[in-house]
């Protein structure tokens, strides 16, 4: 019982990270119909920006104030949001009317660029670094052997708050309505007076900011931040992509559910089967979903009359 509860907590915490990253994949896919392979690098940069910003603010030594993590989180989100804006403007917008394969290849190029550029000595360097302890490593309480750490609690709370905000943005605001219209039919959206390019820019900014939040949370969790081109970033980003596909790519709620589900499967498998096969569970689940419900759990199910 103890193991189960503990695993569920860990699974939800991990899944929240996947969900935050998956949202960026799915939002961009929903509007532009291409997989932004550079998205997992934005997540990586979110972690690195967090380390750098915390260092610049002098929180690498001593005991930072309790609100420090909120400042770093927001700053990293802003930095990655800006970066997402620039990437879309420079790399993807010129290809708006090009075949989709060109955009896909460009995305891979951007991804490689970000990974390797980040390793330059004047940028982040190529050695792992230590994330300043913005969130003290304490347990909030141990109930019958179940440990809820402060970091995990913050991960879950931040993810829930951000996803709630996103849900409100997409379903409760005029801008969100425009985003959904653009994702359904770009040309007709333009006929409604919607500035499609602006909506696409905003989508990249929002998606990148969410990935940055995931990057910050991951750095706060694992403390030792790997070098920018390290395979662990790619793998985490890839698993988040799997989460987006499982939930139904292009579907925002699907990405949230897919992320959490994937985190749970991975942790439950790790706890009860073998912890060495965690990646296997993830991809087994992907294969199962693709076989049984290829459009994803929340993929398009609306009946359209002609």
């Amino acid at each position: 019982m103890t193991t189960l509860v503990q695993t569920l907590i860990d699974g939800v915490a991990l899944g929240s990270l996947y969900a935050l990253i998956a949202l960026g994949y799915t939002m961009v896919y929903g509007i532009l119909r291409f997989i932004n392979f550079a998205h997992s690098d934005i997540f990586m940069l979110g972690a690195w920006f967090s380390c750098t910003i915390a260092g610049l603010l002098g929180w690498a030594v001593g005991t930072p104030p309790t609100w420090a993590f909120i400042v770093v989180l927001l700053a990293a989100m802003a930095a990655c949001g800006l970066l997402g804006f620039i990437i879309e403007r420079l790399a993807y917008r010129p290809l708006r009317s090009a075949p989709r394969i060109n955009v896909l290849i460009t995305a891979i190029g951007v991804s490689l660029f970000l990974e390797n550029f980040g390793q330059l000595p004047k940028i982040f360097g190529n050695t792992p670094t230590k994330m300043p302890a913005l969130i003290p490593d304490i347990a909030l309480g141990s109930f019958a052997g179940v440990r809820l750490s402060l970091v995990n609690l913050i991960v879950i709370v931040v993810a829930v708050v951000l996803m709630g905000a996103l849900e409100w943005l997409i379903y409760g605001t005029k801008l969100g309505r425009a985003m959904r219209a653009v994702s359904y039919d770009t040309k007709t959206a333009a006929l409604m007076g919607i500035d499609v390019d602006r909506v696409i820019s905003i989508t990249f900014v929002v998606g990148s900011a969410l990935a940055a939040a995931a990057g910050f949370l991951q750095a706060a969790k694992i403390v030792a931040v790997q070098q920018p081109a390290h395979v662990s970033w790619v793998q985490l980003g890839l698993k988040a992509f799997v989460a987006a596909v499982i939930g139904g790519i292009g579907n925002v709620r699907g990405a949230m559910i897919g992320g959490v589900l994937l985190g749970l499967v991975e942790m439950l498998g790790g706890a009860y089967l073998s912890s060495e096969l965690r990646v296997v569970y993830v991809f087994t689940m992907l294969i199962l979903v693709l076989l049984l419900k290829p459009e994803g759990l929340l993929g398009k199910t609306t009946v359209e009359k002609v």
Binding site: R177, S183, Y184, L191, T302, E304
Partner: peptide, 8 residues
């Protein structure tokens, strides 16, 4: 072809 946003 009307172009209504079927998802809205």
């Amino acid at each position: 072809g009307r172009g209504v946003f079927a998802n809205l």
